[in-house]
């Protein structure tokens, strides 16, 4: 096995305790010339020495892969799904998975059978908006004796988005666009009037799937409806009052949520970007993404 890829060993606080007990045992044995105490001293030290390869090999053949992370709002928790695979032919115990420097808890996997995998969800706080990357995971285990902690760092490239924290005035801004554009074009999406079918795309609402057609053996299609555009709402960065960029983005995020909840078609105007008004999950995330990446 590649020595350079062996896990690192870190002593825990318990090592200090062990050293103290070992010293006390040795001292007692030698000053009393007590062979039984010597035997205890040798047993304890040999046990510790033998536990070193056990601690190393317990995490050496573990592999971890991350899965895609759902975007979250700043201030909430990021949930990173991790799959830990045991690539060895032996059962492994007491593994803890952690994202270093994330400020989050570590998740414990008690036991992974040979050749099997375990899934954990690591949660850590989402701090500020933006795009992040989890570059490193740590698999650690204090098994078997808790005196040494074997740590195996694992590189990964899991990107995730943190949307701005939605804050501010929940009332939607007055619809200025309506007067400017007479009867703007209707947007396909949720509405009352049937407008035809279209191929299903992941993320679309399941309620709109043409299940009758599926039953007849057709591929998944969604029924499209149109809404009379009573007035597409343009959420404009420039129109938000205030000087603080973050506060303005937070206000926009809140409005996007409110508009989506009220089922009002909305568009977004940022410096250099414009997203035409629409509704639905895809559009919702597209807008928030633009906010998250705004510079």
């Amino acid at each position: 096995m590649n020595l350079a890829r062996l896990p690192r060993l870190r002593p825990t606080a318990a090592l200090g305790g062990l050293v103290f007990v070992l010293f006390a045992t040795w001292y007692a044995a030698s000053s009393q010339n007590n062979a039984a105490a010597y035997l205890l001293f040798f047993t304890l030290s040999s046990l510790f020495i033998v536990s070193i390869p056990h601690a190393l090999l317990n995490v050496a053949s573990l592999k971890a892969t991350t899965e895609s992370v759902k975007p979250t709002f700043a201030g909430d928790e990021v949930s990173l799904p991790v799959e830990v695979t045991n690539q060895s032919g032996k059962r492994r115990y007491g593994v803890r998975v952690q994202v270093p420097d994330s400020g989050g808890d570590e998740q414990a996997v008690d036991e992974i059978a040979a050749g099997r995998a375990a899934r954990v969800l690591i949660r850590f706080p989402a701090r500020a908006r933006g795009e992040y990357e989890v570059k490193r995971l740590c698999l650690a285990s204090a098994f078997p004796l808790g005196i040494l902690r074997a740590i195996k760092p694992i590189n990964c490239h899991q990107r995730f988005l943190v949307y701005p924290k939605p804050e501010g005035d929940p009332r939607l801004p007055p619809d200025r666009a309506r007067s400017a554009r007479n009867r703007p074009r209707t947007e396909l999406g949720e509405g009352d009037d049937f407008a035809g079918v279209r191929a299903y795309e992941p993320g679309q609402s399941q309620r709109q799937i043409d299940w009758k057609a599926v039953a007849r053996g057709h591929p998944l299609m969604t029924k499209q409806y149109t809404t009379e555009a009573t007035g597409a709402l343009y959420l404009d960065f420039a129109a938000v009052s205030g000087d603080d960029t973050e506060a303005r983005l937070a206000q926009l995020a809140l409005w996007i949520i409110e508009a989506e909840r009220a089922r009002r078609s909305y568009g977004l105007r940022l410096r250099g970007t414009e997203i035409t008004p629409s509704l639905g999950q895809v559009h919702f995330h597209r807008c928030l993404r633009a906010l998250a990446l705004f510079k």
Partner: peptide, 29 residues
């Protein structure tokens, strides 16, 4: 047993692990 995790697991497994460790330690002892 303590460091293998919070869920108990099989009852005798930690004892077996301890005996294995001690058996491997015998030559050193």
């Amino acid at each position: 047993q303590f460091y293998r995790g919070l869920a108990g697991g099989r009852i005798w497994q930690p004892l077996r692990a301890a005996l294995t460790l001690l058996a491997q330690a015998v030559p050193l002892i």
